[in-house]
Amino acid sequence: MAEINMRQAISDALWEEMERDEKVFIMGEEVGVWGGTYAVTKGFYDHFGAKRVKDTPIAEAAIVGAGIGAALVGLRPVAELMTINFAFVAMDHIVNEAPKLHTMFGGQMKVPLVIRTAGGGGRQLGATHSQTPDAIFAHFPGLKVVSPGTPADAKGLLKAAIRDDDPVLYIEHAAMYQVKGEVPTGDFTVPIGVSKVQREGSDVTIVSYCRGLQLSMLAAEQLAVEGISAEVVDLRSLRPLDMGPVIESFKKTNRAVVVEEGWPSYGVGAEVSTRLYEEAFDYADAPIKRVGQKEVPLPYNRELEQSALPQVADVIAAVKEVL
């Protein structure tokens, strides 16, 4: 084990996969000469060269579309969208092409494509650049959607995504690149579609992922001081969604809070709580609570923005409501 930050974990995964397999290459805006807008691919261009680290025009449909095409003919592209907010202009290729081709042609085609992108708010980028629209993408069968909350999962999930024969949307959080954690040394993958208990507890189940996981872990620490034992389940993948550990935990604690950074309406919390009601209703001792972003486009002003984003205190308050 070694303690590294999220940026390093993602960068290492890409580097190691490119070293391992000639078919893996990166394409996106400023991934090459610049070194990546979040410095994830710093040094890649010099090491791997222009063929495997391709700077693209600012044309997201071309980035994802060409990624699909290259994947169809045998490569394993990692197509990078600078932020998930730009994914909307490539929406057709992300949700209506990549996830459809394998099934629509009766299994003839495979699309081993990774779309790497970063989302999330809190960096004063205003309404168009601060969103967490993960649930929209997780809505579509055929696409896989993962969003890690720890450096170890970031590395293992990215490696798994690159080796996967289906299209995977890999969502990072733009404000989490400095987050540190223990990462196993050597080659390893984290399976897509497998949730994980990140902290054991007995009084309440907190379900979350990505930035929400960070909030949930901090909340669990503070709750422990007050004598409240929270179990934190990390979804890690939004599709396929592994409800197993969530339900198991809920059957034990009988209370749950779902934490996400995105808007709660039609969101991850809505999905998880509904499935809990459908599959474990008899175990519920209190209504399940959702914690998410206030239902408003995010403003620029720092205080306003922070007031709209979910905070550790919100998670703690929600837990106390369900106890």
Partner: peptide
């Protein structure tokens, strides 16, 4: 194929050609 969203297969075609160029 056989692609039904008008114009969407053009970037895909570029990617297929990229795959050939790459390999």
């Amino acid at each position: 194929g056989g692609h039904a969203i008008v114009g969407a297969h053009l970037p895909i075609a570029a990617g297929m050609a990229l795959g050939d160029q790459y390999q």
